[in-house]
C-alpha cells in the first residue's frame, strides 16, 4: 500500500540562539582586536660615543664603507668612504588633519613662523572652519624633491608617476623615475623601488596612476639600493649611520631609517650633525 505523506507547513529556522552566541562572541573578540599594530625599529648605539662605556675604541677599518646619511633642513646627503653623492634638495610640506572636519590641509612650514614651546605657531595654519592647528597635529611630513642648478636657484619640484593606492613611485627597467604617463598604459611593464617588483599594469592599475611631486625619500632609496648592490662585499655592507641636526623631527628620522632598512642596511646607528 502506498504511504501517504502528510503535508506539513514549512517552519522558519530558529536563528535566535545563534544570534545570542554572536552577541557574546563579538564583544569578546572585540576586546582582543588591534586596529593599529605597534611594532619596533631597532637602533644601534654608536660604538664610539658618550652613550656606551667601552674600554677601547675599535680600530678604523680602511676597507669599511662608512656609509652615512645626513638630514639637514634643506637636503639629504649620502656620504661614504672616498666621497659624497650629490645632495637631494627638498621642499618640506606638512599635512595637518583637522579634528573639527577631519579634512587635511597642507602647508609650507616656512610660512608658519616660529614654533612656540606649547607647539603652536606664530602664524598658525587654519582649517576650513577657521580653527587653528599646532605642531602636534601634523599627520604627515612630505619631502618634495627639488632640482637645483646652483645654491642660489630656488629650484623646481620634480614630478613622478605614482600609484594612487600605494606610496610607491614607478621606475623603468633602468631604474629611472617615470616622470609622466607618456607611453604607459594597460599592459606596460613597470616596477617600484623594491626588488622583484616588476609587473604588467592592468587596466584598473593604469587608471590609478597619478603624477605628483617626487618624494626625496624615494630619491634616497634609489641611491641607497645602488650602493648596497655595488658594495655588497664591504665589511660593513649592512651598516649605516643616520646623522641629523637638533631640530629634525623624529618622523623624518624614522622615514629615512625605513628607506635604509628596505635598501638592505639593517644595522642603523644614529649620530648628531655637528655634535
Amino acid at each position: 500500500m502506498p504511504k501517504k505523506r502528510k503535508k506539513e507547513s514549512m517552519k522558519d529556522l530558529d536563528v535566535l540562539p545563534l544570534l545570542n552566541v554572536f552577541s557574546v562572541l563579538i564583544p569578546v573578540i572585540m576586546t582582543n582586536t588591534h586596529f593599529q599594530k605597534v611594532g619596533i625599529v631597532d637602533v644601534a648605539l654608536p660604538e664610539r660615543s658618550d652613550m656606551v662605556m667601552t674600554e677601547e675604541p675599535p680600530e678604523p677599518d680602511d676597507q669599511a664603507l662608512n656609509l652615512t646619511v645626513a638630514i639637514t633642513n634643506d637636503y639629504l646627503q649620502i656620504v661614504a668612504r672616498g666621497g659624497m653623492l650629490p645632495m637631494v634638495f627638498y621642499k618640506e610640506m606638512w599635512t595637518f588633519r583637522c579634528k573639527s572636519d577631519n579634512d587635511t590641509i597642507t602647508y609650507d612650514p616656512s610660512k608658519l613662523g616660529t614654533v612656540k614651546e606649547d607647539g603652536t605657531f606664530t602664524n598658525p595654519p587654519k582649517c576650513k572652519d577657521g580653527k587653528e592647528t599646532n605642531k602636534y597635529e601634523i599627520e604627515t611630513v612630505g619631502l618634495w624633491s627639488v632640482l637645483k642648478s646652483s645654491d642660489t636657484d630656488p629650484g623646481t619640484v620634480q614630478q613622478s608617476l605614482y600609484s594612487s593606492m600605494t606610496d610607491s613611485a614607478y621606475v623603468d627597467a633602468n631604474n629611472e623615475f617615470l616622470k609622466d604617463r607618456s607611453g604607459i598604459s594597460a599592459g606596460s611593464v613597470v616596477q617600484t623601488l623594491k626588488e622583484s617588483s616588476a609587473r604588467k599594469l592592468t587596466a584598473e592599475q593604469a587608471k590609478e596612476l597619478v603624477v605628483r611631486p617626487r618624494s626625496a625619500y624615494d630619491e634616497l632609496a634609489k641611491a641607497l639600493m645602488g650602493i648596497h648592490t655595488r658594495f655588497i662585499d664591504a665589511p660593513d655592507a649592512d651598516n649605516i649611520i643616520v646623522l641629523a641636526d637638533d631640530n629634525t623631527i623624529f618622523d623624518k628620522v624614522i622615514s629615512v631609517m625605513d628607506r635604509a632598512r628596505d635598501s638592505g642596511f639593517w644595522k642603523i646607528s644614529l649620530a648628531k650633525l655637528g655634535g
Binding site: 648605539l45 662605556m53 623631527i249 623624529f250 624614522i254 644614529l270
Partner: peptide, 19 residues
C-alpha cells in the same frame, strides 16, 4: 616618542638609556 618630537630630545633620551 611622539612623531613630532625633536631629534635633540630623542638623542638625549637615547644617550641616557645607553649610559
Amino acid at each position: 616618542l611622539d612623531k613630532n618630537s625633536s631629534y635633540d630630545v630623542m638623542y638625549k633620551v637615547m644617550a641616557s638609556c645607553g649610559w
